[in-house]
Write a protein that binds this DNA or RNA. Structure first.
Lengths: 146, 146
DNA sequence: ACTGTAAATGCAATATTATTGCTTTTACAA
DNA sequence: TTGTAAAAGCAATAATATTGCATTTACAGT
């Protein structure tokens, strides 16, 4: 098990190319915002972050980029904090794990092989061809418990 | 492993009482809608369902009831279909499992002990006091694959 | 049963978030 | 370079969610 790392901007170009997509500044902005914010963010959070950095990005564009990124597995949504919030990053096997503290709101990413395997077994048993799977654990983090 | 069942309206009264909440018609409506729809529903879906059954419920009330139900663990949100969509039902141990078909949009609920255990282990390892955990598997169901 | 009271609901207004159609700009292949 | 499809921007609108306050309702204690 290990805490996940965020992908470098440099590899974005490659990832996009693999899917026949263009490497544009707005896309780099969005990825960078998600990397730096280090926690689930709303489209608006992303736009704000870009603005704060002296850049500029249209809200509609943010929505569309998120949609694209979701499609190619670069980002995804969270069950815990409503509508269009995002988690941060892609995992090798399509498995995403999160711990979300309902007290301080922070989210920690994790990866666990055994859990991943269990999910794949469930899918198999129910004749389901899985592409990605998500685990989200809600509760109280160590800091907040103290 | 087994597919989950939905709780009876009759037990709602008890659950509510345990949390010091009142047993009202709108609350029964919402629960019944989620039971009968048998898949994640938006607040609007719920209102429509109630209307269709000849009942009536205010949209704001639906939002507030959802909020309350989430708080006491009766329902929760989905990572796969946007904003305020809901899954349906409570699980004994706070573990919720879902298979969501990205082709037909249907969601199937499941419960798996091993997976549940794995999630609890992860939480323990990371000094996290978990209350609920969710697994969502995205992919293609048997029917759509054929 | 009756009644007082806190909780829940409804209503109206508003805020927030997301989508759509169309035009302009941009990445990138030839 | 330059042509072209894809992406981004813009403006308008739609859908979704929230808030404050008035009214109604569940239910505990008579």
């Amino acid at each position: 098990m290990g805490i996940s790392n965020f992908p470098m901007i440099t590899s974005l170009r490659t990832t996009l190319k693999e899917h026949g997509l263009k490497d544009t500044q707005p896309r780099r902005f969005v990825l960078q915002a998600l990397e730096k914010l280090k926690k689930p963010a709303s489209p608006y959070d992303i736009q704000k972050w870009v603005d704060a950095k002296g850049g500029s990005i249209n809200a509609v564009t943010v929505y569309r980029i998120i949609e694209t990124f979701m499609r190619i597995g670069l980002v995804h949504r969270h069950p815990c904090d409503g509508h269009f919030s995002l988690c941060s990053m892609p995992h090798k096997k399509g498995h995403h794990g999160f711990l979300h503290c309902t007290s301080c709101g922070k989210t920690q990413e994790f990866h666990d092989e055994q859990l991943c395997k269990a999910e794949e077994r469930v899918a198999r048993t129910l004749k389901f061809r899985s592409s990605t799977h998500v685990s989200e654990i809600l509760g109280t983090c160590a800091a907040c418990a103290a």
